[in-house]
Amino acid sequence: MTLAQTEITLPGPGPGRVRAWTATLSGGDVTRLVALATVALVFIGFAVTTRGFFTSWNILNVIEQSAIPGILALAMALVILTGGSDVQTGGIDLSLAANMGLSAAIFAVALRAGWGEPAALAATLGAGMLVGVVNGLAVVRLGILPLLATLAMSNIVGGLELVLTENTVIPATSPILNVLSAGSFLGLSSLTWVLILVSTLAAVILHASPPGLRLYATGGHPEAARAAGVSVGRLILGSYAVAGFTAAFAAILSVSRLSASSTGTGEMLLSILAAALLGTVFSRRGVPTVAGTLIAVLFIGFLSNGFQLKGLSSNWVSGVQGALILAVVAATALNRRKGG
């Protein structure tokens, strides 16, 4: 005679990763509201106290500056949401920023060598995607931890960039770069439009198409996805390939913005990662989303912009980013403890 099977444990892809968030208004909802309120308060705070912050010129400027990190953060979000959001064992692409650097170098070098624009574009996008495919194969076929595989890859890619540029800035001009750097439409710059288009495309695919549903399922519980007939391996491989392609795409934007390839793009990695991770607190499910990632990127953008306008040293910026991550992580963890 069985009386009761006690204690309900929620299924999770790994120990401790998903805990009960209690019913109705869950901890996740509270975190989300607090996070959004914080963003709004910081924005309003700057708008009220800082001259020149709340002007259309400044706001558009920040959005334009956020285009490249925003697109890279979306690529990172894609890899995380498909590979699972456990940062240690789940999906992550640490070669993303280095890949952008290499792709930019390839583009600039190809143009300098007199390649035609289409050929240079094809070579750049192809190379970026190749890096992603190798990452994906290492993760899916060989089963290497994504953290390690993409870490090694970032070394390789960073080295290749140096080999190609010998650590110098390579100037580049071409018609399409001019359009991207100087063009505007309806008062918005080309870069802003690109960000809008890329985000829209990403949102449609991720949030309103069957493949999007399957990508999230793959990240949320690979065995369940597999049992439902989803080709888990192919989607994970695809996520790294698309991330690599996106890095190359961002590289072209970056070359257009600077009219040159640039060194040291690898340093962008951590803030891209921070944005993608921060973005998860804006989602009900605690997963990376397009909107959440964009909010996080813009938030970081406005924060450093506000500091700049206030005349605060830019030395503070990364510290504030760090404190933000800490606050978010701590809030999520405390919430989870209360809920679970």
């Binding site: 999770g12 549903l213 439902a228 007939g229």
Partner: peptide
């Protein structure tokens, strides 16, 4: 075997999603 972050509808539809054109 269900995706914890999916909704009930998504969990049931997964793999045989109802479509609207190319969209879910």
């Amino acid at each position: 075997l269900l995706v914890p972050t999916a909704t009930v509808a998504e969990a049931i539809a997964l793999g045989q999603e109802p479509k609207f054109g190319p969209f879910y």
